[in-house]
Design a protein around this nucleic acid. Structure first.
Lengths: 107, 107
DNA sequence: TAATATTGTTGCAATGTTGCGCAACTGTGC
DNA sequence: GCACAGTTGCGCAACATTGCAACAATATTA
């Protein structure tokens, strides 16, 4: 590491950005249980279908999710399950942050 | 997994959001090499110091980075190195996406 | 001690980006 | 034709990013 061109960081940021939304994280979580179509996801959210469609587009654009058309429906699949390990780390961040704030509160 | 309240996704999204910026990813990458003060980071970026200060604030707020004051300087430290494993995954996503686009181009 | 430089933060305004619903649209199946 | 599954154009509100200028706090130097 160390010397790295800005393009790499921009590419990474694009992936992170796609995951920087509670709605999209919930979609990924749902897809971790297997293929789903938008019509199955929709009842889980209090969102207009156009909005949900756009969120899915974001995930597709960075390659986290792929699409398989079947008649009128398009089934979505999680392409990179390692995303799930990211969750473990974010939870670790949250726990570490909670500990730190505890220490500050006691001091 | 499966049934999870929206708060968890929001908490995760806050962490991801903090990492959804090329500038902040570069800061984290630099801090993976050990403690740095802002004055050391500044030359690496073509940004006003106020802007850089604010990016660092974002990383501190979610607990990814901690601060240790020493005189006029404040040294920054990466609190959760598992963040680095997130990078491996994002690179995996990018590679998978590249493969997929290759396939589409050939078809 | 007083002036000056270094290190970093904060208020402000301009600009850019994101998330959202509505309405209109395409395509599929009955 | 009509319902179902998704997508796209549009406008709006909220939020993020940025530089400038002013600030506080520490360090250095005269």
């Amino acid at each position: 590491m160390g010397a790295m061109n800005m393009e790499k960081f921009q590419a990474r940021a694009r992936v992170m950005k796609a995951l920087a939304s509670p709605v999209r994280l919930k979609i990924v979580d749902e897809l971790s249980g297997g293929e789903r179509c938008m019509c199955e996801l929709q009842p889980l959210f209090d969102l207009n279908k156009s909005t949900l469609s756009r969120h899915i587009t974001v995930l597709k654009q960075v390659g986290i999710v792929s699409e398989r058309r079947e008649g009128a429906r398009s089934f979505l699949k999680l392409e990179t399950p390692c995303i799930l390990s990211v969750f473990d780390c974010t939870m670790g961040v949250l726990r570490a942050d909670a500990r730190q704030k505890m220490r500050l509160a006691q001091a």
